[in-house]
């Protein structure tokens, strides 16, 4: 499988904390969902910001396989423009990625139905609930149809049906060959859907691999992802 995103960060961070994350090395391959796992404040979002080139200090190498339509980013907090309708948001995203009118209409209408947002097509996002705003962010990402999806805590604010729809769509994109990097702290869902895991704690990548590899690494043959995560956190905390 081709590597779509290769991350090799020695350290990255902010002006007042330039080494917020250190030694983060992993890759996302074609048709693979990689879970970026960590507690609150572990450095998941900082790692994502480093990948998106949003940090003032990044010492390392981040490379995408594709030059065009490299990635779509779905942030934890929806980022929208208050004076544009839902449809205009989609149209603007299509313009930024040079999607022609026919492909735009087909994909956008399909997404409107899939996310049950047709009634809100000409509404302003200020009138949406957080879940609806999140759905719009997801629609924009699926409209762009990139090779890599970077998703930050996607389940916060989504209703159960929207979560299932979102996971179905992710699965379909995965089968079509996209790579997905998903940051989450909801470990039972992550265990069920992710192919590989990158465990982050206190700004460092402590372990990476499939669940089987993590079990082997921690010498716990029947451990869940939660157990592995607990083991790595306790081990690190004891050592520090």
């Amino acid at each position: 499988m081709d590597v779509l995103l290769d991350v090799s960060v020695q350290h990255a961070g902010y002006t007042d904390h330039p080494q917020a994350v250190r030694d983060i090395h992993f890759s996302v391959r074609q048709g693979e969902l990689v879970g970026l796992i960590g507690a609150n404040g572990a450095g998941k979002s900082t790692t994502i910001k480093a990948i998106l080139n949003l940090l003032p200090h990044v010492n390392g190498e981040i490379s995408f396989k594709e030059e065009q339509n490299r990635y779509a980013y779905i942030p934890e907090q929806p980022i929208l423009y208050e004076d544009l309708t839902l449809w205009e948001h989609l149209e603007l995203a299509a313009a930024a990625f040079a999607i022609d009118a026919f492909r735009f209409e087909t994909r956008a209408n399909d997404l409107l139905d899939r996310f049950r947002m047709r009634e809100a097509k000409h509404h302003l996002p200020d009138s949406f609930s957080k879940g609806m705003q999140q759905k719009l962010m997801m629609m924009i990402a699926f409209l762009i149809d990139p090779s890599v999806y970077i998703v930050d805590e996607p389940f916060v604010g989504l209703d159960p049906k929207a979560t299932v729809d979102f996971l179905d769509l992710l699965d379909r994109k995965k089968k079509e060959g996209a790579g997905i990097l998903m940051s989450t702290h909801i470990l039972d869902t992550a265990e069920r859907i992710c192919d590989r895991f990158v465990l982050i704690h206190q700004g460092r990548c402590l372990a990476a691999g499939t669940l089987a590899e993590l079990r082997q690494h921690f010498d716990r043959p029947s451990a869940s992802l939660y157990d592995c995560f607990q083991a790595v956190v306790e081990d690190t905390d004891e050592r520090s």
Binding site: T85, K121, D126
Partner: peptide, 18 residues
């Protein structure tokens, strides 16, 4: 930090159908 209004406008007053 634009705070969410209690009754935000649902449709724009102009170009209502995008």
């Amino acid at each position: 930090m634009k705070q969410k209004a209690e009754h935000p406008r649902r449709s724009p007053w102009i170009f209502r159908q995008s």
